[in-house]
Design a protein around this nucleic acid. Structure first.
Lengths: 204, 204
DNA sequence: CAGGTCTCTGGACATCCGTCAAGATTTTTT
DNA sequence: AAAAAATCTTGACGGATGTCCAGAGACCTG
């Protein structure tokens, strides 16, 4: 076998990783459109620069691809509120900005959130990408709890609920708004903003 | 054409309806086990007394069958709290009995609830049985609101939230507990009972 | 330039799907 | 009992699925 320079192996690995990312993004967009169960590998490949045969060169199987795709999207999504938590100076500003951000992502990324709930439900039937879903779920719970804790700091009042309950309530609110929005109710955005602000304000 | 006696047509219609119900129940059990996307008509028929071809004699298509199945299960499920609402004498009894009932159905009917969330999500991608899902969703919201209103009567305090928000919070709590339970956490049952009681107590 | 990896394609594979229709079987009517 | 209507089975259809593979093209190394 030929000996490879360190530079070559690194660019190789980089290209491999970048291809994986590109395919994962194509998978994300495609599945977000039609749902996990209704989307085949050929359709995903059609939305990318490669053919359907290549998917098994970069991913072990379909579950591997989907896990990478949802992780790519959701792990970054969970960090989107960190800056708000850090830079908010008082409690009302924190609550307002969080509510605004949630309303904005409901409006802009509705089909991606729909995909998330789709995959989280599928993972209750099969264990293909269950581990990834569980990890993301934990991330989202930490995200909500970070907001609650910061709000507690700013108000001086202790949180009145535990992290998992807080996450459950916020998630219920968001999922309900998402469903209403997708069913054609544009007012769901503003109502989510209002209810979200009210909920976070009353969690401490 | 032969004239049929009223008696005969009625028994005909009865038998037809009873067959539909039997098939819907078989579909319910089968899909609850493996999920909507992973279950074919042949598998459903295998869990019933008929063959897969008969399904199209009693139902227009697969969506029709699934709609009937989920309606059969969920429309009755939404009425299960009516008796508690009517017969509870004071606020704490109402809250305790509701929380007990929710914890019990989480323990006993977990896979049916999993199916409900599965179908509700699927209906956000396809419009096959969307109308049925929307109807059931409205029923569940009314169910939650009936509890809140009764609690308001018994305490003399007005509800602090609107019906859709109350439903969103309760649903978030239940769905979160269901996910934890299905992932292998048996403590999710008692925690749902506690959190549910706490939530209903603070909604008025 | 020759040799050897790496990358990618297009097609084949077995299997499943929902739907349908022709015909057998059962039930009811005349 | 004969005829008709309702019920049910079986097998087929076209299409879609995930996976795999032989081989072509690209790219780097010597």
């Amino acid at each position: 076998m030929g000996t490879l320079t360190a530079r070559t192996t690194r660019t190789r690995a980089d290209k491999f990783a970048s291809r994986r990312r590109m395919l994962a993004e194509a998978a994300l967009a495609t599945i977000a459109e039609r749902g996990f169960a209704n989307t085949g590998l050929r359709e995903i490949a059609h939305h990318s620069a490669l053919s359907h045969g290549s998917l098994h060169y970069y991913f072990q199987d379909k579950d591997d691809l989907i896990a990478e795709a949802v992780w790519l999207n959701k792990s970054e999504c969970a960090r989107r509120y960190d800056e708000i938590v850090v830079t908010s100076g008082d409690a009302t500003e924190l609550v307002e900005r969080v509510a605004d951000a949630m309303a904005a992502t409901l409006r802009d990324d509705a089909s991606l959130h729909r995909l998330w709930y789709d995959l989280r439900n599928q993972s209750l039937f099969e264990d293909g990408f269950r581990d990834t879903i569980v990890r993301i779920d934990a991330l989202l719970e930490q995200m909500v709890w970070a907001i609650v804790q910061r709000h507690s700091e700013l108000t001086g009042r202790p949180p009145i609920l535990e992290p998992d309950v807080a996450y459950a309530l916020v998630d219920g609110l968001f999922q309900n708004a998402l469903i209403r929005f997708l069913r054609g109710d544009p007012g769901a955005i503003d109502r989510l903003r209002r209810d979200c602000a009210g909920l976070f304000s009353s969690l401490t």
